[in-house]
Amino acid sequence: MYLIKKIKILHETIKLIKIQKKTIGLVPTMGNLHNGHIKLILLSKKYADIIIVSIFINPMQFNCLSDLENYPKTFKKDCKTLKKIGVNIVFFPNVNEIYPYGICNQTFVEVPRLSNILEGRSRPGHFKGVTTIVAKLFNIIQPNFAFFGEKDYQQLLIIKTLVKELNYFIKIISLSTVRLKNGLAYSSRNNNLTIEEKKIAPYLYKTIKKTSEAITKENINVKEKVINKAKLALIKKGFVIDIYNLYDQKTLNILSQKSKKMIILASVWLGKTRLIDNKKIFN
């Protein structure tokens, strides 16, 4: 496994890979790897000859400086894991390598409408940071495939839109949310939960499943009643709700009678930790 910090060295390595006509799979991460990342990387090995995992804690996508400073840094541990599962290259640039003139002077990439609703409304500038770093990684690495989890559904949709509208010849492959046995989605944010909060956190997905079952069973016209019941149940458990509703899977608009495929999107606070989750519902 090769560890590469410099864009120039990675670019030269990519040239050699292209000469050998080998396909490249990219798994972008911020490190602090968990089982969700591992499953995504194992999936990538089914598609591509060479697997590149990027580890970069991207300051542009953080709204709060303390969140950036407190993000877990587990590079050595991550590298041991990546080597064990057969990753070929780890790209781990520093901030100056990615943003040589500073973030304020950085040319950025943004997907306008999708980046400013839902999570984007609650976290202004977050998705601009995500799409800018993803576009830079795509330009540097030129992968044939890139892999993302479905837990961050809005992010996934934004990246697919980015690829389509900027004419990248990259196939985006997604993986269903990977969960602990209790149903809680794997996330680096779970590390911030207290012992008591970890007992409560799985209730989010349990509630989402109940909502899904009720919507599937009942007429769509009663969705407002079902959603309100779910919100009350979550509040009683101690969650503070930012987002919890039914949306169109393609547009992320509030569900209408014209919507053919639905998704429940949830974004809540449990103590000081923000948790997101979702579940697709097919009509």
Score class of each variant (00 low, 15 high):
residue 77 K to D: 13
residue 119 E to V: 06
residue 77 K to T: 12
residue 142 Q to D: 07
residue 130 V to W: 12
residue 138 F to Y: 12
residue 140 I to H: 02
residue 121 R to D: 14
residue 82 L to I: 10
residue 127 F to C: 15
residue 97 E to D: 11
residue 83 K to E: 14
residue 93 P to C: 04
residue 63 N to I: 00
residue 55 I to F: 02
residue 136 K to E: 01
residue 114 L to W: 05
residue 120 G to W: 07
residue 133 I to M: 09
residue 86 G to A: 08
residue 74 T to F: 04
residue 76 K to Q: 13
residue 132 T to Y: 11
residue 61 Q to Y: 00
residue 88 N to W: 02
residue 76 K to G: 14
residue 75 F to K: 12
residue 64 C to D: 15
residue 138 F to P: 03
residue 134 V to H: 06
residue 75 F to Q: 05
residue 98 I to F: 10
residue 83 K to H: 11
residue 126 H to K: 09
residue 59 P to H: 03
residue 131 T to Q: 10
residue 74 T to Y: 03
residue 138 F to L: 15
residue 64 C to Y: 08
residue 69 E to R: 11
residue 78 D to Q: 04
residue 105 N to S: 15
residue 67 D to F: 03
residue 91 F to S: 00
residue 150 E to M: 05
residue 125 G to V: 12
residue 123 R to I: 09
residue 57 I to H: 09
residue 87 V to P: 09
residue 83 K to P: 02
residue 58 N to C: 03
residue 66 S to Y: 02
residue 68 L to M: 04
residue 132 T to S: 11
residue 132 T to W: 12
residue 91 F to M: 01
residue 98 I to H: 06
residue 105 N to H: 13
residue 120 G to E: 09
residue 76 K to A: 07
residue 59 P to A: 04
residue 57 I to K: 05
residue 63 N to K: 04
residue 71 Y to W: 10
residue 66 S to C: 00
